[in-house]
Design a protein around this nucleic acid. Structure first.
Lengths: 331, 331
DNA sequence: GGCCGAAATGTAAACGTTTACATTGCCTTT
DNA sequence: AAAGGCAATGTAAACGTTTACATTTCGGCC
């Protein structure tokens, strides 16, 4: 392994000079600068990241902690993060730590300059305590907490509320919801938005209309079957995410129910697939990659000025995307 | 920042002993072991990754270099990698380096123990030369090269060949192909498979039946329009990936052509979306996450025994998935 | 020509670990 | 009781950088 010493030897200078050249210091003569550059190139030298990190206390790496690496959502969010990070020359240390956030966090110490943590579990308070005190962290889609971290999320409540309003506007009075995962913050917020709208608009509010789910396609399928077999007879079904909506679509098709004629179905997230299913799915659009980009921007910001800053807390707006599955005429 | 020295001081032992405890060395008495554990816990100590890497020359991190972080393919492959890596306690340093593989590689020096590189560009020979000589690397979906690296890919040729055979078996004689990106290895192989099958089965082989594409949905849409407007009149269209097939589906629908009655459409990759489009897409299934898992397994293997091993080279089999878009009765 | 200050370069400490080697203490053996 | 051996612990060097500080070089000025 070729080190800075080798370069120094070849260029006939001290290691300090080599280091200076490589870090674009001003105080080295053009002459020697060239000699060093040449030597480095010749030897195919590139500095040892760990050694550099040790002394500078900077890794130029951002840690990304996700509950699970799965599906389109993850893909999009990490794309946004990567884009923003790469622009500033930062690397990404990615880890899916559904089971053990704590240990994942520990093992990232001394490896990253900051963290983007997505842990929508409602009871994650404990693991969050294991974050170092004054370490730059941005929370993604996390329940609001007393913790002193920047926090970024999406407008779950408002999105769900808007969706129910939209359905009500189409004349629906009995709207069922397929709930998201238990203990999931996003799921809880969407449910809250649903309930608020139902109450506000004076819609039918039987507890039976709230079906359990866990964000999986299978759960959507099961919920739709329950609806078909029970006597609930809702005229519309709002699934807490698109996957479940898609599962519901196929269940209804199997049961011989026509969507949207017999029953309207809508989702949440507007994943790319939503526009391709049959019928195309009405959903709540979330700009997922923007979420990642923004989180990264914040984090890099915080890295720049590690002084005490006031907490940032923001909720990204959502927009209703009307397609055929809800039965509205507008395409 | 709490270091090993602090722990040593609190536990009233030397740093060596602390280190030994933390690395599960046998030669420390249960008594002191407990004292150290206690102190570490109390202080919330966790070892500094960079410092550790510097001395051990191990980072416990795998580098993942992708041409682009985009869409389902990436998501799946990285999921496979992550799964396998996590099992062995390895981290993932992910980077999308479409533009500058070279610099991405350099900046990973001293940060990773091995690399998984996916660079399907046909002219990537140059950048590959910038890989350190005897460094563990697994190439993914790369053109075969003289380079001395393990290489893992998918059976593009065979998959395309099988698809054309399948279509021919349904009675099609004029089968068009929407080609993948120029200079892309996978694309070239799929084209080769198409041509071989066409020739072997004595199908119509007009050059006009080979339409340009770049793996994007838009390209598929454009190609389908060309087909509709030209006098080519193929009875089946084989798109080199599912995205393009989906684009073609929508173009045909807009043109009032019924799939599969008027024209059959098939794809490649079998992304999750394929089964949800209307009509469900016949495709060539590739187990993408298995690709990632296997690559990781190889890499970890190589890390274990850095002696001279013979090169591994493997091609993952594909399977035909018949759905409605090709017009076969079998569901 | 000697001196001064600035510019260029060198020297060595520091970063937080691991680990080879040295030291200590204790038990067994004679 | 002395010697020897082994288990437990300590000491310090090493890893490859960066950087504060020391030293050298050099040009210009008197």
């Amino acid at each position: 392994m070729v080190t800075i010493k080798d370069v120094a030897r070849i260029a006939r200078v001290s290691v300090a000079t080599v280091s200076r050249v490589l870090n674009d210091s001003e105080l080295v003569r053009g002459n020697t600068r060239e000699r060093v550059r040449q030597a480095a190139l010749e030897l195919g030298y590139s500095p040892h990241g760990a050694a550099r990190s040790l002394i500078t206390n900077r890794t130029h790496t951002l840690g990304v902690l996700l509950p699970d690496i799965y599906g389109e959502f993850f893909s999009e969010v990490i794309r946004g993060i990567d884009q923003a990070a790469q622009r500033e020359g930062y690397h990404l240390l990615v880890s899916s730590a559904r089971d053990d956030l704590e240990s994942a966090l520990r093992s990232m110490r001394g490896r990253v300059d900051g963290l983007i943590v997505m842990s929508p579990a409602l009871d994650a308070g404990a693991s969050r305590r294991s974050l170092p005190e004054r370490f730059p962290v941005v929370l993604l889609n996390c329940p609001p907490s007393d913790a002193a971290y920047d926090s970024l999320g999406i407008a779950n409540f408002e999105g769900a509320h808007a969706m129910v309003r939209h359905l009500a506007g189409l004349g629906h009075r009995r709207i069922a919801i397929i709930r998201g995962a238990e203990k999931n913050f996003d799921a809880a917020e969407r449910l809250r938005g649903y309930r608020a709208a139902v109450k506000q608009l004076g819609l039918d509010a039987s507890p039976g209309l709230e079906l359990p789910g866990d964000f999986s396609e299978a759960a959507g399928h099961a919920a739709a079957r329950t609806i078909v077999e029970s006597g609930l007879r809702p005229t519309a079904v709002f699934a807490a995410n698109d996957c479940m909506a898609i599962g519901a679509l196929s269940a209804f098709r199997e049961a011989g129910q026509q969507v949207p004629v017999d029953i309207a179905v809508t989702g949440f997230d507007d994943i790319p697939m939503a526009r391709y299913v049959e019928p195309a799915l009405t959903s709540v659009h979330v700009d997922i990659s923007a979420l990642g980009e923004r989180a990264t921007a914040w984090l890099l910001d915080a890295l720049g000025e590690p002084s005490v800053r006031n907490l940032r807390r923001e909720t990204l707006a959502t927009t209703l995307v009307v397609r055929r599955s809800c039965g509205a005429q507008s395409q």
